[in-house]
Design a protein around this nucleic acid. Sequence first.
DNA 1: CATGAATGAGTGTTCATTCAT
DNA 2: TATGAATGAACACTCATTCAT
Lengths: 200, 200, 200, 200
Amino acid sequence: MPKVVDHEERRRELAEAVWRVILRDGLEGVSVRAVAVEAGWSTGALRHYLGTKEELLASAARLLEERVVARMQRRTGGLAPREAVRAALCEVLPLDEERRVEGAIWFAFTDRSLVEPRISEEYQVVFSGMRELCNLITRDMAEMGQLAPGLDPAVEAARLHAVVDGLAVHGLLGRMDEAGMLAVLDAHLAEILQNSEAPG
Amino acid sequence: MPKVVDHEERRRELAEAVWRVILRDGLEGVSVRAVAVEAGWSTGALRHYLGTKEELLASAARLLEERVVARMQRRTGGLAPREAVRAALCEVLPLDEERRVEGAIWFAFTDRSLVEPRISEEYQVVFSGMRELCNLITRDMAEMGQLAPGLDPAVEAARLHAVVDGLAVHGLLGRMDEAGMLAVLDAHLAEILQNSEAPG
Amino acid sequence: MPKVVDHEERRRELAEAVWRVILRDGLEGVSVRAVAVEAGWSTGALRHYLGTKEELLASAARLLEERVVARMQRRTGGLAPREAVRAALCEVLPLDEERRVEGAIWFAFTDRSLVEPRISEEYQVVFSGMRELCNLITRDMAEMGQLAPGLDPAVEAARLHAVVDGLAVHGLLGRMDEAGMLAVLDAHLAEILQNSEAPG
Amino acid sequence: MPKVVDHEERRRELAEAVWRVILRDGLEGVSVRAVAVEAGWSTGALRHYLGTKEELLASAARLLEERVVARMQRRTGGLAPREAVRAALCEVLPLDEERRVEGAIWFAFTDRSLVEPRISEEYQVVFSGMRELCNLITRDMAEMGQLAPGLDPAVEAARLHAVVDGLAVHGLLGRMDEAGMLAVLDAHLAEILQNSEAPG
DNA sequence: CATGAATGAGTGTTCATTCAT
DNA sequence: TATGAATGAACACTCATTCAT
């Protein structure tokens, strides 16, 4: 009877090893060997679960989405709609080391997906997930009467997405500090969202 | 008498070869050899003009800035302020093939500068140039009374920059078409800029 | 189960390949590729056993010391002190093909360690081993009353070392034949060592 | 009419440039380019006088002999025989920076001549010059009755040569300081030379 | 005579990948 | 399943040398 191995579990272990390597040596430092050593495996063993370096990185990308989504749910629970929106968006800004690492990985994949269609497919879920979140936000807010009058929810979703991703890029580049990112985000939310505590 | 060679011209040729390689294989695909082949030179010949790979990439980054700035100047001349603003910003959105190419180069360098401080320094001029443009726009508009009331020019410059770069990323990823980008840009400008023809 | 390989054995194989390359092309001719070809391996395979060129050379230097020491022990066993001294010193003179080869290796490393501190460290054991031998000889002879009167054992050790290394150099250069080297060595030993069979 | 150039003068200029490079970057740092830059010439210009790198180094070797001989003559003039002998021999020991550089070059050529017969020929003059000096010393001293009784002038010349070259090697290796070298040299001279002030 | 542009093989090293065990 | 030995091409960079001008 062959040994039973949980492939999915193994892949997650590997993805986490990839992350640790990225944290330590930067994204350029990711090599099959380095990941194997980090995970405490032999180089050959990786091939059973992740055939190529590309898949290795892709698994790290999948982990990215899982982590961000999980953290969003954890941190927006129980919040009022407006605060939940702000909290959710903050989860994709590089406001601390954890999110900076995620952002660097997000960015690396964004770049790669420009020249590698296969990465692009894998990566689509990340982009679409974020766009969907923005759509939900503007649509729900519109339904709740909290979107500023005259704004098109679809256009606003795209604009919000652009603002957030643009801020993330600038933050990752070290050209914008945490306070700066939050100031812009808050200015933007203030503008597109009605003041909810509107009178009686 | 030795053959006379215009070093600056050669460097430009090389920078263009670097661009072609980046477009084809991504920035990761840029190797000294690949650039030499692309330019039709021998590998050793590169050293006369660009000593290291770093310089090679830096020259490609400089070319980017030169081109965008030149085109902005060409296309905004003679326009009214508000139209000039829109025209200038459009020059960094991937609205046609030429700008898509530039955007891909911009993106590659943005990504790379995240993990390579040296690239980061060389690349700074690109980021700073764009940020400065945004600062000029919001400050001038504020001085002309065309910035919407209650907005902080500095924050708005950062927000505008974020919107534009975010749009560029989404456009480059093929997740947003030209019309979409323009719709968001126009929505944004409409919101932050006063209608100037609003007298008594 | 992976192929089992004796790393130490491999390193010795490699060290011997390094020797052959040094003998053929000089130490300057030692390249990772040349050694790989000489050993009949692929370039990449070397990295399993000897990570860098430095380690490659170091292993060749270690082999030198091992061989000379082993031969000295083998050939001085059972000899009377004075004959043992002569026999030991003869082991570092290029008196036959085997010792000429070793001498060439010794010389190459001596030269190289002049300009490369790292090599120098690795090579120290060779120099120190020989100096220690000379120290032992003069000290023991002094204790046995066989050192010529008025001589300082420490200075004599250094002088003996100089004579032997000088002879080795001249022999390696082909400027001195075996008989010449032995004549000088014997003259030197005759001078510094008392005639032991000198009683009443 | 072609420009008249003193080739010999040029070669000397180059040899001195080679020396400066050796002093600055070590012997490994000698490259055709480095020498050309140091001499203030173009790389191509070297070819007119010194076709290959080998010739470049050979010219530096010739300079070596000239310098040592000139210094010996300068520093032994007017000295009593015994002091002149000591002074002459000191000129080939690495007792100061100038002589250390000479020694390093001497050693490099000694090494090279082991594997490159052509260098060997060029280098012969250096070895033979030194051996001849030693022969002169022991023969003259013997004729003057200052050689210790029972010593064979020819063997003693070879021994003296070996001691001096051995000391030079050890000094160059940094394993023997100036005082140590002089102590050994003096011990050796004391032993082979009669005390001259020993009348009746 | 002299230039310096140009060549292309060479350096040590790293790497993703393959495969016999 | 799992190992790690082995491959060989690729990397940036250096170099002695050639040659058109």
